[in-house]
Every structure is written in C-alpha cells, then in structure tokens.
Amino acid sequence: MSLAAIDWGFILTQSVTQAFDFNAVVYALAAIGLNIHFGYAGLLNFGQVGFVAMGAYGMGLSITLWQLNPFLAVVVGMIFAAIFALILGLPTLRLRSDYLAIVTIAAAEIVRLIARSTVMRPITRGAEGLNEFIGPFRDLSPFSPGQIYGIGPIEWRGSQFFAVVVGWILVALSLLLVAQLMRSPWGRVVKAIREDEDAARALGKNAYWYKLQALILGGVIGGLGGMVQALGNATVQPDFFVAPLTFFFWLVLILGGVGRVWAPVFGAVVYWFMITFIQNTGRQLVDEGLIPTSIMDTSQIDQIRFWIVGAALALLMVFRPQGFFGSREEMALDAR
C-alpha cells in the first residue's frame, strides 16, 4: 500500500501505446472531419459519431451483405457517410446553425438505434454487430496476425498493427487534402462563409452549396475513422457509436485548436495519452488501496473520463478556444 508499488513504466508504456494506437487514429480522423465542419465552415455538427458509424457499417455491410472486394467496400463506406451528410444537410443548412446541431445529434442516435434493432438484425446483426467482414482485410495485411510489431516497449499484434498503419496513412492523406483545400480559393470561400455568410453570398458565392460540400467532406473523413475502428476492433457494434463519443471528438479538436490543420492529430494523441495515463494511474491507486473503494472502485475510474472530457470541453471553449497552438491575437479578432 504505497506509491512505490505503482508500476509507472507500465502506465507510461500503455499511455504512449494508446496515444498512437488505432483508437487515436479514429479520433483524429473524426476530429479532422469536425475541423472541416466547425473549424473552417462553421457548421455545428453534434453527431459526428453518426458519420463514423455510417462509414463503418457501409464498409462492413459491403462485405457481409454484398460480398464486394475490400477496396470497393471502403468506397461504399465513404458513400454511406456522404449520403448521411446529404440527408442531414439538405434540410438544415439553410436554417440557423443550431438546427444542424439538433438534427445531427438526433440523427446519430437514430443510426445507432436502427442498427441495433431487431428489425434490422438480418442485415446489421443487431447489437452483436458485424464481424465476418474482417477476413478479406486480414488477407490484405502484410503483417502476420500473431506476431508482435513495434518500437521498444510499444508494441502491437499484427492484426491490429495493420489498422494502426493504414489508419495513420489515412490521417496523413486527410491532412494533405485539408491543407491543400484550405490554401485554395475553395477554402477561402468556406472560411468567408464561416465568418459571414451574407458577405459571401453578396459576392456571388453559393453558401448553401459550399456548406453542403464541407458537411459531406468532413462526414466522409469521419466515416474513414469508422472504418479504421472496424479494422482495429475487427467488429462493428452499434453500441460503440454512442452519443458522448462525438463530444470526445470535439474535445480532441478543441485541444489542438479549432481551424488548424494539425489540431486533430495533436489533440487525439494528447487525449489518448492523458486519458490512458489517468485511468491506469487511478486503477493502480485503487488496487494499492491509496484510493479507498468507498470513494471509488475500478469500474468508476472509467467514468472519470467523462468528467474530464466534460470539464475540459467547457473550460477550453471559454478560456482557450484557440487550443494549444492557436494565437491569442487571432482569437481577439473573432467578433464574438
């Protein structure tokens, strides 16, 4: 019963591993999507997890239901996310921004409820979810599933290492895409719309159409996140896609600094490092009796995550909306 008994080496290894694991990739991709939505186009998407789910299900169903090849399956996943964006965006993007927030949070939950419903069981396998899709992807993987890959103490099994590698490649491609778009005239229009839609319209820009494009693009990148999740966990379960996940993505985005190309990656790595560190330390403190179980037991340690996310989200949004990287000067220009 002492601090000395805490295995800091284990905790650090775990934290660093998680910071670069496929989960961090999932969060990074979802947050890159959110960054396009909120950071550049000013769209309030409170249901990003719905896009993530659409990507995952689109890919999974392509194989379990339609027996497509894995590459086509990825395309279908992207199309799923794009269609979801169209359904949500077409009615709401002409309205005030809070309508999109309300509709997205509701629609994300609709996706989860429908996917886990008994009616859809023949297709989505209900709450158990899809898992037969993984075979064709395993066949593509150059890594042997049982072998351990990694650097030093940070290691992955081959089956997951594939998801990690594919995931980070997707992150890199997405960042390149965002960087290129944002230095193009397209990005200029989108940023102008974020700041003042009427000004953009008065200059002949079809704000509605650009917002729809941004919603689709960010949603599709979020959908890629869902696919990485499916690869890494080798399963697509509806109850992975719960509503709070969207707000973890939001925190990841705000941590890095809204409207910065690199922000989501930075935020995801920091987020996963911190959460893993705090939770593992907490668990060990409980195990060592340093936190009495009358106050908190190990299952409750996992709930701390939500407190931290909730508090960090609120505090950062108010006191440091520009994130770790953002400059104060730029925020001061923000006509709040």
Binding site: W307, V309, G310, A312, L313, A314
Partner: peptide, 18 residues
C-alpha cells in the same frame, strides 16, 4: 459566443450525467 456556450452546455451535461 452562443456557439461556445452551447459547447459548454454539452460539457456540463456530460459532467452532470456521470
């Protein structure tokens, strides 16, 4: 801004719920 306040209500709801 109202949008920031909205995100604050989200954070608040997560904290309260848990």
């Amino acid at each position: 801004s109202l949008i920031s306040q909205m995100v604050v209500t989200i954070g608040l709801s997560l904290i309260l719920r848990y």
